[in-house]
Design a protein around this nucleic acid. Structure first.
Lengths: 215, 215, 215, 215
DNA sequence: GATGAATGAGCCTTCATTCAT
DNA sequence: CATGAATGAAGGCTCATTCAT
């Protein structure tokens, strides 16, 4: 690991502010949508002045880009760990699902939900940065697809386009997100996990096996 | 059947233009999002001038309202027919799924996909017509939920919150929509139907039955 | 008098339509104001289609110009008759006042009231035609001013800027117009005439004389 | 007198900008009319950008409302003082006239001149705040009318509808305003005061009295 | 660095004007 | 000729972005 100098106070403050702003942006966009969220609202939610955001992010596009990258990169890293692990595909599937629901619950409620919003927004506003986020999503979907592909090859999953299965998995996760939002209960996501796992396993595997007993 | 006078030429043109504009609005909103879609873009997509839209719709809100109502009311009517039919819940489920995918294909993804966008948009504009669309969705989700509830009561479906199951069903349908969009193939939706039916039945029913043989 | 050929049917219709449109324009502008009156409203009030107006007038500006010219020219002609008559200035004043109130009442309710509106409108929209209407008003005010000037020279009117006295006279006439509008009674203007005459004579003449007995 | 804390710099700037914008709006509306005045023009006249106006006023209607209220409320207060004073009606009349001309000069013609424009504009926009301004004018006209009514009861003024007399008084004041505008001289209003007083007294009072000696 | 007042491009909507029928 | 659907320039308003304090 590289030599890591003690961060200066300035760097600490900058990192703190950056996180604060990203968190505020997430919060506001969750209820207002990407397009409707104004920099004023985000600043207010972060407890700072509007102009201050521009000290940490060059533009709204940049802020969104950072937001998406942050979540996307983390998610990607975690997925890579799962994909690289020597596990049978159904087990990987369970882990992926658990991971996605964790993201949905803990802090990154948004990624699965507003990615599409973000795409639309970038299509209109930003040109240059679009590619990176698209690539992130592509790699995320690709990793999950490969899990399905493996399972299909090994005869454990039903034969179908792995990408379609991936979209279905994501659709189920989003469904839980919407359910969570509409119910307003904090536990909704956690409670849905066993159901989702059971559902996914019985649906995706060729011969339903018993996974309900797992944690 | 009621007496149906021959429509005047003007009525025909008006109906045609109305449909053209609605189709253009659907198209633009599908790729730009409800909020980002500008009247200029919609007009351009419809091959007319911006002001012309206002000859057929009073405002952007009115246009959206017409869009949502049109699809929502039809969908609701069809769902009511299914719900009222004396069929076993799994059979109803299959029919609902088939219907939703048909809408996804014919109506260009509209209702299931951007309803949420629409909500957010209305949140900012005023509640005028909001209630009606909300009620439509509520009734649609309610009908589907009741199918699940029936099946659960009769021990055919897995015990879970029927509303969560409904969200999951919708999530799967949307997933096919996104898959369709990303693949760009016209047949994608039709091809996905058997898979989705199999998946839903094995996932939702307590003991997987054999439905794959159905058309 | 020049030879006057029998007007063709076309000319008759044209003249009729022109008058109809002008009357409708007057009516609409009276309640909506010059700027707010739309061509649609005027056409509707005239019982014709919007496009038809453009067969008789080149533009809204042209229509307004015709409207103002028509009334202004008539008024000017009548005022010239009064000014040219060999009458003592107070008598002329009474006749001018009577004339102005007649215009206010009968058909040209607008001239004294919305002339200013019209100016403002022309300042923004039209450039070329402004001069003629301005000249008309100038000549109207000039004629009345000359009556005052005569009276002042002959020692019958109070010494003051004749133009100020003219503005005051016009202000009184407009006051009756507003009173009429606010009361909504048709007779308001006629009833106000004796009062206005008495008021003007006692106010403008150096030694109040008795004119109340006059018709 | 209440404790008056030193205003913050921000408050000072806000008050200054507010006054600047109101003054600019007055200026533009005076020459363009209420309806024709655009926010762009007003902003330009105030030397600021269009959007800046919206930092101080919520809408064009709000700006107009502030404009009318400001002047109307002041005028009403001053008129109430005059009306409440134990003075003979002719004396009150002189004071009212003096007051109105002062407003005409100081407040740049506003209230008496374009109130009617404002009404028309509001007719098209919605009644929200309409009532208050209407009430203000009603009370202003009512106070002046009552002065006339008193004088008529006491046999000092000519018998006539007090409201008509009020409109006439206002018409005379407006006349001076237009005279002022057409002459472009700053002193025009002040110079017209004695004439107007003489004119009003000889016109409105039953037996002309000598008021010319007053300041 | 932090602030928030100021800016102006861009959106929705209106309406004078045109032109195919 | 008459019509009224279509057009697009212009106005009110919002909000991402800048910059003087």
């Amino acid at each position: 690991m590289a030599f890591k100098p003690k961060p200066t106070k300035k760097e600490v403050v900058t990192a703190f502010r950056t996180r604060e702003i990203l968190a505020a942006a997430r919060e506001v966009m969750e209820c207002r949508g990407v397009e409707s969220a104004t920099m004023d609202e985000i600043a207010h939610a972060a407890g700072i002045a509007k102009g201050t955001i521009y000290l940490y992010f060059q533009s709204k596009e940049d802020l969104l880009h950072a937001l998406m990258s942050q979540v996307g990169e983390n998610l990607l890293r975690n997925l890579e760990d799962i994909a690289a692990a020597p596990l049978p595909p159904p087990e990987k599937l369970v882990r992926v699902l658990t991971l996605l629901l964790e993201y949905l619950e803990r802090e990154q409620v948004l990624f699965p939900i507003y990615l599409r919003d973000f795409y639309r927004w970038l299509q209109r506003r930003g040109r240059g940065r679009f590619g990176y986020i698209q690539e992130l999503e592509e790699r995320i979907l690709g990793l999950i697809s490969r899990c399905f592909a493996e399972g299909i090859e090994q005869g454990q999953f039903i034969p179908a386009d792995p990408r379609l299965l991936t979209y279905m998995l994501r659709g189920l996760v989003r469904a839980v997100g919407f359910y969570h939002l509409s119910q307003g209960r904090k536990k909704a996501i956690k409670e849905a996990l066993p159901l989702l796992i059971r559902f996914a396993l019985t649906g995706f595997t060729r011969k339903p096996q018993e996974y309900e007993g797992r944690s």
